[in-house]
Amino acid sequence: MRRPFRVLLCLAATALGLTTLSAPANAAAENYVALGDSYSSGVGTGGPYSGGGCKRSSNAYPQLWANSHKPASFQFAACSGAVTADVLNSQINSLTASTSLVTVSIGGNDAGFVDVITTCTLNGDSTCVNRVEQGKTFARNTLPARLDNVYNAIKQRSPSARVIVLGYPRFYKVPGSCSVGLSDTKRSAINSGADVLAEVTAQRATAAGFRFVDIRSAWTGHEICSSDLWLNSLTWPVEESYHPNKNGQSKGYLPALNAVTG
């Protein structure tokens, strides 16, 4: 009778060992690096900001994640205004072979985010729609190679890291409760640009073997012209405009990141 019992013990020990090996890494052992643009650096939260012109906020989702998970190390390299070339030329230096977790949001500035918003604010519907279409063409035809370059560089620098690519929200609720501002035609056009950017980014992230986090659904009901904004409309200082506010970072981006790192 003892032999079957010993077999059961061995099987139980084996199962326990397999469970231990397959469990997610402890956050305390993570070496986390946050790359990206202003949506990762936290512009729009009102500060306080550090990093000079990079404007890294203590209210940005990378810092909030680090505060709550207490990784072994945290490098906050995201920078306001960054394009893919900035990640390749400077931010990438924050990565090492020991980096185990990387987050990145990039591509919006390459696709002309600022110029699209400016054009749509200062011009009529047709000019706005045309500018958005130009941005969508760029996103489909030129941006993929730029994203591939970034993702390949991340893999080369940190081949063992989990890499999480976070997207951008739709900007506007259409129709919304805004009594002044952009027309529904302009709002719909801008949202369509966000959709194309999300689709392209998701495709390239998946092709690289990375996890893409699409936050558009989480943002539903919290766009500009909704009753519970997670995104600034035109505001002061102007650079805070059209960026996630504190709720956008803590209730939008952070839970989305928690969901894939938990």
Results as ranks from 00 to 15, higher is better:
Ile224Cys: 00
Val150Ile: 13
Val180Trp: 09
Leu143Tyr: 05
Thr142Phe: 05
Gly124Met: 08
Ala208Phe: 04
Val165His: 06
Arg187Gly: 08
Arg146Asn: 12
Leu122Lys: 08
Asn191Cys: 08
Pro169Ser: 02
Ser100Arg: 03
Ile117His: 07
Thr220Met: 00
Thr137Gln: 13
Thr103Ser: 15
Ser227Phe: 10
Ile154Ser: 10
Leu234Glu: 03
Ala189Arg: 09
Thr206Pro: 01
Asp184Tyr: 06
Ser241Asn: 09
Arg170Pro: 04
Arg140Glu: 15
Thr142Asp: 15
Arg204Phe: 00
Trp230Leu: 06
Gly193Cys: 03
Arg216Lys: 11
Ser158Pro: 12
Thr206Arg: 09
Glu199Ser: 14
Ala111Asn: 05
Arg162Leu: 09
Asp228Leu: 10
Cys128Ser: 12
Pro237Ala: 05
Gly107Asn: 11
Arg170Leu: 12
Ser217Leu: 04
Arg162Pro: 00
Thr127Arg: 13
Ser227Lys: 07
Val180Gly: 09
Thr99Glu: 04
Ile117Val: 13
Thr142Cys: 03
Gln134Cys: 04
Asp214Ala: 04
Phe210Ala: 08
Asp214Gly: 01
Asn149His: 09
Ser233Arg: 03
Asn123Ser: 15
Gly135Arg: 10
Ser160Ile: 06
Tyr172Pro: 00
Ser241Lys: 09
Val114Asp: 13
Tyr172Thr: 01
Val238Ala: 15
Cys120Ser: 08
Leu166Ala: 06
Ser160His: 14
Asp115Tyr: 03
Asp115Leu: 05
Asn130Asp: 15
Leu166His: 11
Glu240Leu: 11
Trp230Thr: 07
Leu143Ser: 13
Gly221Glu: 10
Leu143Arg: 09
Asn130Gln: 15
Ala207Phe: 04
Ala218Met: 09
Glu133Ser: 13
Thr142Arg: 14
Asp214Leu: 00
Cys225Gly: 06
Ser241Gln: 07
Ala218Cys: 01
Thr185Asn: 11
Pro175Asn: 07
Ile164Lys: 08
Ser192Ile: 02
Thr201Val: 10
Thr103Tyr: 03
Ser100Pro: 03
Lys186Asn: 12
Asn152Asp: 10
Ala189Leu: 09
Cys128Glu: 14
Arg170Glu: 12
Cys120His: 07
Ser126Phe: 08
Leu143Ala: 11
Gly107Thr: 06
Cys128Arg: 02
Pro237Met: 09
Tyr172Phe: 15
Phe171Ala: 11
His222Val: 00
Gly167Lys: 10
Leu234Met: 07
Leu101Ser: 01
Thr142Ala: 13
Trp219Pro: 00
Leu234His: 00
Leu166Glu: 15
Val116Asn: 01
Thr118Met: 11
Pro175Trp: 04
Asn109Ile: 04
Ile215Gly: 03
Gly209Asn: 11
Pro159Ala: 10
Asp195Met: 02
